[in-house]
Simulated scan of single mutants.
Amino acid sequence: MSSDSNDYGWDESRGISLLAKLRSDLKQAMREHDDDRRNTIRQVISEFPKLTVPITLESGKKSTRLKKDEEITDDDILGVIAGLVKSEKTTLELQKKTSSPYLEILNSYLPQPAGADEIRAWIAANIDFASFKTPMQAMGPIMKHFGKKADGNLVKKILAGQSD
């Protein structure tokens, strides 16, 4: 029924900005009366006013203004979605649940996280532990490379294993 370009979710290889994909998915969800998806995407978009740019007013005062659509980057939106995922996981933990349709939909827009094997392989190829006093000091370059794709706690565990 739907082609690849109309599938919900996003990844960088699609060649479309995350903002454009969210907007097209919202229209599709409304047409298909998919309330869970529609409400989730609206929740993400409702967080955009938190995305601001620092400015200096003529009086010299520091302030911020909202980012215009063309200024909103995929990383900005991924940060918003990651924040919503974190708060939903906390809520589900309190309810003794493991997942919800809302969480599943949010996760479909996040890049797939780097696995432990991928992180270990990159560390082996790129990190010289002799140049660090402790393995934990390699955390910075590793997180800089993987960005939001790597879970900091997983990287810490891998590095802790290096010091054995």
Results as ranks from 00 to 15, higher is better:
residue 2 S to T: 09
residue 3 S to N: 14
residue 4 D to G: 14
residue 8 Y to G: 00
residue 8 Y to D: 05
residue 8 Y to I: 03
residue 8 Y to L: 07
residue 9 G to H: 11
residue 9 G to P: 08
residue 13 S to N: 14
residue 14 R to P: 00
residue 15 G to A: 13
residue 15 G to W: 14
residue 15 G to H: 14
residue 16 I to H: 04
residue 18 L to V: 00
residue 18 L to P: 00
residue 20 A to K: 13
residue 20 A to N: 13
residue 21 K to A: 04
residue 23 R to H: 13
residue 24 S to E: 01
residue 24 S to R: 01
residue 25 D to T: 00
residue 26 L to F: 07
residue 28 Q to K: 12
residue 33 H to W: 07
residue 33 H to L: 12
residue 34 D to H: 06
residue 40 T to N: 01
residue 41 I to S: 00
residue 42 R to T: 06
residue 43 Q to S: 11
residue 44 V to H: 01
residue 44 V to L: 01
residue 44 V to M: 00
residue 45 I to F: 01
residue 46 S to V: 01
residue 46 S to I: 01
residue 47 E to A: 11
residue 47 E to G: 05
residue 47 E to M: 09
residue 48 F to N: 01
residue 48 F to M: 12
residue 52 T to H: 09
residue 53 V to R: 10
residue 57 L to I: 04
residue 61 K to W: 11
residue 61 K to I: 12
residue 61 K to P: 02
residue 61 K to H: 15
residue 63 S to V: 08
residue 63 S to W: 05
residue 64 T to E: 14
residue 74 D to A: 07
residue 75 D to C: 05
residue 75 D to W: 06
residue 75 D to A: 07
residue 76 D to Q: 09
residue 78 L to G: 00
residue 80 V to C: 01
residue 81 I to R: 01
residue 81 I to T: 02
residue 83 G to N: 10
residue 84 L to Q: 07
residue 84 L to V: 09
residue 87 S to T: 15
residue 92 L to C: 12
residue 94 L to K: 14
residue 96 K to G: 03
residue 96 K to S: 12
residue 96 K to V: 05
residue 97 K to F: 06
residue 99 S to L: 06
residue 99 S to R: 09
residue 100 S to G: 08
residue 101 P to L: 09
residue 102 Y to V: 02
residue 103 L to S: 08
residue 105 I to T: 03
residue 115 G to W: 04
residue 115 G to V: 10
residue 118 E to D: 09
residue 119 I to S: 01
residue 119 I to Y: 02
residue 120 R to D: 02
residue 121 A to S: 15
residue 122 W to S: 05
residue 123 I to D: 02
residue 124 A to H: 12
residue 124 A to I: 06
residue 125 A to R: 14
residue 126 N to E: 08
residue 126 N to C: 10
residue 129 F to H: 03
residue 129 F to V: 12
residue 130 A to M: 10
residue 130 A to I: 10
residue 131 S to R: 15
residue 132 F to S: 04
residue 133 K to I: 12
residue 133 K to E: 14
residue 134 T to M: 11
residue 138 A to I: 03
residue 139 M to P: 08
residue 139 M to F: 15
residue 143 M to G: 09
residue 143 M to P: 10
residue 147 G to S: 10
residue 147 G to P: 08
residue 148 K to W: 03
residue 149 K to H: 07
residue 149 K to A: 11
residue 150 A to T: 04
residue 151 D to W: 03
residue 151 D to I: 03
residue 152 G to D: 08
residue 156 K to I: 09
residue 158 I to T: 08
residue 161 G to N: 13
residue 162 Q to K: 15
residue 164 D to G: 12
